[in-house]
Amino acid sequence: MPADPAPLLPPLVTARHAACRHDRHRGLLDADFTAAGRALGVLGPPRSGKSTLLALLTGSRRPTGGSLRVTGLDPALPAERRRLREVIGYVPEAMTVPPACTVGQFLRYVGWLRGVPAAQLPAAIADSLLVTDLTELRDRPVRTLSTGMRQRVLLAQALVNRPSVVVLDSPTVMLDPEQRSRFLARLVSLRGRCAVVLATPLVQSVAAVCDEVVVLAAGRTVFSGTTTDLAGGTDLADGYRRVLAAAHR
């Protein structure tokens, strides 16, 4: 997949030995990479530190060591962390929308969370509904929606503040193959609007969306580069397995 760099903008993510430890051996121990493209995949087995890295990228947590910048903003600095939180959209892992509320109500809530000014909120909601093809479903309670539609609601909420980066944590794990491919196609189309950071245990998802990839194992970066580099002339999944095997040795 061709890279789509924006040379005048700062890199999407720059991590220099960034760490966020839960204790001595858990959490993110050493993330060291630079991603300059429009779509970054984060791969790794369970407990490899993916969600912790995403917590740093979204400003949910502060690094306990090293340095990190997201679109040039340092989440360790309070003022820049506040700014970062305004320009980020986020789909947390295994997130579900309360079934009784309507799509519009939930987007209004997330708009309030993100600090979207009240005057701009209706237009922002309409825009995110349009991008995710949910305009007709605005007043439907979430419990009446299919799994695929609910996943689109999660994507819509991540767009409600017109972010410059959307961070998604394992968004396709619960979807069937057809729903997954449609969702990934939608993410690809999003790359024109904003950068995408996609953490997932599914290599195919990264292959479909991302041009750059970071592989984490036991809290450390074991690979960073383009998807083509990771594949190494073979299938991306094979390349991923090779990198993990090398890391375990």
């Binding site: 917590a55 979204t58 400003g59 947390p92 892992e93 295994a94 969370l113 600090g115």
Partner: peptide, 25 residues
């Protein structure tokens, strides 16, 4: 509890309202 289990707390943690602020409504 519902707010946290659904992941809405994690979403709110990535905003300037924070986890506690997001639960205020």
């Amino acid at each position: 509890r519902d707010y946290r289990v659904r992941g809405i707390g994690a979403l709110a943690a990535s905003t300037n309202r924070g986890t506690a602020g997001g639960a205020l409504p």
